[in-house]
Structure formats: C-alpha cells, structure tokens
C-alpha cells in the first residue's frame, strides 16, 4: 500500500543526523532563532544526555520538515511539601520556516502530525512508567514565548491549556495537557 503523499516519518536523532541540518531554519523571529540553534548546536546533545528523545521528521522524499523532543524532569512541589513530581515535557520543537502551514489539507498538516507523534510518545512514557520510580507522570508540559501567538493558538487547538499566572524566564508561558489514564 502506498503512503499518503504528505505522510511524515520519524527519524531518531543522532549526532550524525545533525549533518543533514545545513539549511534548516525555523525563522528569524525573536522566539525562533534559538530553536534553530538548539537543534544544530550542542544544546540538543545536552538534552539527550539527560534522557530526552529527539526526532527529525521528514517527508517521503527525505526532506526535513521539523524536529521534536520529549523528556522528563523532576519538579518539586513548593514548600512546605517539597516532594518531587515527574513531569513529561517537550523541551523543544520546531518546523522549518519553508514548511509552516503546510500542506493546506488540515488533516495532514505537518505541525499536527508532529504534535500527534509527541503526544503519543508522552502518553507512552506515562503508561509505561516503572512503579519503582514513584508516581507516574500525568501531565505533558511545554514552554512557549508569550509573543508567539501563532504557536499558542496551535497548541490550544491540540488540547494544551495555559497555566494561568506562570511566566518563566524570558517571557515564556507554560502550557499543559493531561496524558495520564
């Protein structure tokens, strides 16, 4: 059976795969430049060393459309509790500026295919969480710049909600979606 022409494929990211990112750019907006730098520089390796999984997403013709990542982090409840909670997070995802809003068919929109994949991986982490590592994570969170309205709307369409009253470093907002059972 032939795949749909807009089907994306997930390639597990490796250092060798970085050589394929020569012309890859996520755009020149203030909230985009560092996204390109993250995947093409050493930040991606630093993140992978702490357990983050990273994929390149490519077309049937091996053109790289974007990348995404899923990992976990241990956060602590504020005092006096102070106990730890595991959170699944999307440290970074990006789409090459050439592929934004493509294809026009919303069922096959690249951004949507990528997010479906990351949500599936997040759910997989939550579902297969070993019992001896404490309570399974229930939330998938991501960070988005407050001026990146286009991305915020996209994440909301995918089911994410902004956590009210939370602003992280450099004007980043935090969004969450339930991935527990």
């Amino acid at each position: 059976m032939t795949d749909h022409p807009h089907q994306l494929y997930a390639v597990l990211f490796t250092e060798a795969a970085q050589t394929r990112l020569g012309g890859f750019t996520c755009g020149d907006e203030p909230w985009s430049r560092h996204v390109t730098e993250w995947i093409r520089g050493s930040d991606v390796h630093h993140s992978m060393r702490r357990g983050t999984r990273v994929w390149l997403f490519e077309t049937a013709g091996h053109e790289i459309v974007g990348f995404g990542s899923v990992g976990t982090s241990i956060w602590r409840w504020p005092p006096p509790d102070g106990a730890s909670a595991t959170i699944v997070l999307i440290p970074m995802l990006g789409i090459d500026a050439r592929f934004r809003g493509q294809p026009s068919d919303p069922d096959w929109r690249y951004s949507c295919q990528i997010m479906k994949h990351l949500l599936s991986e997040g759910q997989c982490i939550a579902r297969e969480w070993p019992g001896d590592r404490g309570p399974a994570p229930h939330w998938l969170v991501l960070m988005v710049h407050r001026d990146n309205v286009r991305a915020i709307r996209f994440y909301e369409r995918c089911g994410f909600e902004l956590i009210p009253g939370v602003v992280r470093r450099k004007d980043h907002l935090v969004m969450k979606v339930w991935i527990g059972g």
């Binding site: 203030p30 909230w31 430049r33 560092h34 730098e37 993250w38 930040d43 630093h46 993140s47 702490r50 983050t52 990992g71 982090s73 997070l89 440290p91 970074m92 960070m143 710049h145 992280r168 470093r169 450099k170 980043h172």
Partner: peptide, 9 residues
C-alpha cells in the same frame, strides 16, 4: 532563550 529552555528541563 536557550538558557531559559535549559532551566525548563
């Protein structure tokens, strides 16, 4: 921005 992403993880 990259520092912010690092601290998020």
């Amino acid at each position: 921005m990259l520092d912010a992403v690092g601290s998020f993880q």
